[in-house]
Design a binder for these strands. Structure first.
Lengths: 213, 213, 213, 213
DNA sequence: AATGAATGAGAATTCATTCAT
DNA sequence: AATGAATGAATTCTCATTCAT
């Protein structure tokens, strides 16, 4: 009882909590939601199953926090770039490439967190963070529009398209699987960031050009 | 044997199989894979659970067929447009808009079939059809490139981006939910098809233009 | 209705009944009771599942009849030998060898009918026919005892032992599997019939001899 | 972890595992494999069905262990006698009688474990232990042959016959059912062991004696 | 008489959550 | 605070039997 406030125990508690979170994250990174059972998490964290429930009220909330932790980090990285130096184009390209590089390092995790839903409650958490990530892209698009670098468009919708485009090409089920070669990965990232820039580029789409001509 | 040829029985046989398929599809359309249990399908189809197994060897094969049926239809619609008349730009825009219109009519179903996985076996079927749909977009991009209407790029990657872009904006978790208003839906579709055209448009990306200039 | 008595239909009925019985027997001969489903029987017999129930009130009664048919034939063969010519020893040996030869021609069937139980109701039928077969061996033992050729013993118990001995060696799970070679089969049958004769031979068992000596 | 060493918990763990095994064994002893369902075992053991799966990965492995436990004990008893004192005849007789006495105490169980198959996986376990038991009888026969006490024969085949003979008379479907009377049981056992000795006795089979004479 | 689709009770197995220790 | 065994509802699949046609 008294111990509760002693740093040692707090550390211990935090230790356990962190280890459970880390174990959960690693499990998702390895096998997606399919194998992310509470018992597996506990085993990997080196605690008893019941202990998981001392720190998290339910499986869903545990994994929602896993998702939030990872997603927040990605969002922050992107946000820092959006708020950084350079033209809107440079920043948009930088944000896409930064996200891509990180996602490619842990694609299974990225896929699970981004695209692979399972329980509705976890899905809700995903929605929040996917929205937060998208928001950053909406922001840079709006900045670009204000500066006259990007074409006029509904930034919210186009931002969603940008996110969809690079995610699908990076971690979607149709994304190339053999990215062991760094050069191949670099080329993929380049192509994707070119594509995302094209989405917001000033020039009118080809279809309209013709019609006008 | 003899009965097989009587229209009444043929109808009846087809009826049940179709009703099971329809029930399965509707269930997915309503609640995603989460609630797509064999027992629910049977109840909704008005048959016994065992009857489901007369027509489908397993739950996975039933839902794989649901997925294939819907997906094939979408793929065929898109393919017809890709093989149709008009400039590559007109055709790409047409394909995107046709898919969008249809997807918006049953977004929950579209989402489940496109993005929401569950059992690995069903997932495999999804992959096939998602790949087939993507292939159509790759094709029109390549046609556009050959005719000089679209920019030089890796058609496969960019095709994936196009698919990701419009799917995310249409049925992804960030897609707008209140599309009851037809005008709003029309505007969304327009914006998405503009965006997809922008992806392949001839003009060089804005980011590079600046740098060069 | 009227047709019922016309020979053609009677033939047809008998035809169907026989085909169902034959199909059932063949199925057991191929895969034991494990795969002896009513639907499989019907398919193999070329009739509808429901038709099986026109001729047999239940699965159990169908297979009980299969069992009875085959077993009766074996019993009759053995009975004929028991009632035939020759010394009791010759007849006992003949009966064992006749049974063995026939059993080896269809060991899966023999095993299923003799040793592999499944449903209690079928088991009851097996009991009857196994008893009938055993009875023939009891008879020949008693004849041998009356003629002073066989040792004094409880013919019923020893008859059971004889049946157990040759069945175990012939179709039991420990029986040799590779009897493709006729010479090997011949040797096995010889050894078994020697053994069965030894069971009833006049000489006192070795254990007693020693003690007396 | 810590608890594991406290006797109370060890007892408890062992208790439940044992109770499940005992319940499974009793269920087989009462009704054979027919009524040996996981749910019944759990009910009889006083635990939830899920608990069974904490201790055994599958129904088949649970019952395979039941079978192995009982069979190993029987095999060991027989092996000890085979490796014990006395002439081969005395030992063979002792082994048969020991097995018989034990088998008569739980005939339904003995029958189920010895003869009544059900699931192929359990069957495989049975085969192993039945073979192990048989092996002991083969061994004593070979010992007897080496010492000149038993007749020349294929020990493997004749060992199988011995096992078949006493099993059939003891627990086979033709074995007498009313063995409540100890005297009757004693007489049965005596007759069976006499018979098994006769199988290996030195004297030439009667059939041959006659012919030669 | 024949058909064979439909039935539905059952059986095995999983896993998030609880709770006595 | 930690443990981890126990729970049991939920889910998929099977197959003997029935019955409308």
């Amino acid at each position: 009882m008294v111990y509760r406030r002693t740093p040692a125990v707090v550390t211990r508690l935090e230790d356990n909590r962190s280890r459970i979170l880390a174990a959960a994250r690693d499990l998702v990174a390895e096998g997606g939601w399919q194998h992310a059972h509470v018992a597996s998490v506990a085993r990997k964290a080196g605690v008893a199953t019941g202990t998981v429930y001392r720190y998290f009220p339910s499986k869903a909330e545990l994994f929602a926090e896993v998702l939030a932790n990872v997603s927040r980090r990605e969002r922050d990285v992107v946000a820092a770039i959006v708020d950084g130096e350079g033209t809107p184009s440079v920043r948009l390209r930088g944000a896409v490439e930064a996200f891509a590089k990180r996602a490619l390092q842990g694609r299974r995790l990225a896929y699970a967190l981004i695209a692979e839903p399972c329980e509705p409650e976890i899905d809700r958490a995903r929605l929040v963070w996917r929205g937060a990530l998208c928001e950053e892209f909406v922001r840079i698009i709006e900045i670009g529009q204000q500066q006259g670098s990007f074409r006029a468009c509904d930034a919210r919708i186009v931002g969603t398209c940008v996110v969809g485009a690079f995610m699908e090409a990076l971690v979607g089920p149709l994304a190339p699987e053999d990215l062991g070669d760094d050069a191949v990965a670099q080329a993929l990232i380049r192509e994707i960031s070119d594509t995302c820039l094209a989405i917001v580029a000033l020039s009118r789409p080809a279809g309209r050009l013709r019609r006008i001509a």
